[in-house]
Design a protein around this nucleic acid. Structure first.
Ligand SMILES: [Mn+2]
Ligand SMILES: [Mn+2]
Ligand SMILES: [Zn+2]
Ligand SMILES: [Zn+2]
Lengths: 136, 136
DNA sequence: AATCTTCTTTAGAATAATTATAAACAACGA
DNA sequence: TCGTTGTTTATAATTATTCTAAAGAAGATT
């Protein structure tokens, strides 16, 4: 149970003003036991459900991108009509259940280390992500 | 240099009528030395450039999806506003140069075998893709 | 070859996710 | 409290993709 005060401090330390909307979004995103995966629309609905207060869709987009830029959210590469985000910002991989449109974390030990033996001059590796698509 | 006649046969064998448009698209996609990566819009422009004939955008979408369904094209999972396709339909992985928005093939030996040690009841693995994002 | 059926192409409309706009509002610092 | 700056919001704009339905082309049947 993270307290509202902690979110306020964390927002301030990130040069983000602690508005009611952002605090509510923090509650939904970070005040939970396990990390989770979501789309903007998932989050938009969760905010209403969990806090009783409505936040505009534009603000949800703005805030998610602000948090993403600060490194508090991770974007997951899938081919989907919607972008998926993850509150687990550590390096890790995913199952994607195509039918249920659901992401599932893979622990690094479930995949093993991935050594990329090729390099491109002038470029460096930013991330290495494994996506395992699941079907029935 | 694949001949037009080969495309016609391949289309017929796939229960796809060999129309002028589809043959042109085949020329652009498959009559080349190396496999390549493209978006619908890339392809749309390439058709005009390479064949001199215009194919409607709707047909490009239709044909790409038809070829994808037949297994002649692969869809690459990236977070991008556009969907990327690949004429290399073998199992392989990618670099993605975020700045230049460019996909580069990784040979399987550049990545090594990936063993997924976790399974989800009732689901089986459809694909395993590694995406390595590059930055400057 | 003429006819019929089915598939394909096409322009344009519709959809849907995301981003931009700009006015009202709220947080902050002085 | 006041002025400044950052934020929220409704709404419009943008953009990739899909849908629609009419016209056209391919293949099959005579
Ligand atoms: Mn995850
Ligand atoms: Mn490739
Ligand atoms: Zn983002
Ligand atoms: Zn497809």
């Amino acid at each position: 149970m993270t307290s509202k005060q902690e979110f306020i401090e964390k927002l301030r330390n990130s040069s983000l003003r602690p508005t009611k909307q952002r605090i509510n979004i923090c509650e939904v995103l970070f005040n939970r036991d396990k990390t989770f995966h979501f789309t903007i629309n998932d989050l938009f609905n969760l905010i209403k459900d969990k806090t009783g207060e409505k936040v505009s869709l534009a603000t949800v987009y703005n805030t998610v991108h602000a948090f993403h830029k600060k490194g508090y959210l991770k974007e997951i590469p899938i081919n989907s009509n919607q972008t998926y985000f993850d509150t687990n910002v550590t390096d890790h991989h995913h199952f994607f259940d195509v039918k249920e449109e659901r992401l599932i974390d893979l622990k690094n030990e479930d995949v093993g280390p991935i050594e990329i033996q090729k390099s491109i001059p002038g470029k460096k590796i930013k991330s290495v992500e494994v996506l395992v698509k699941l079907e029935d």
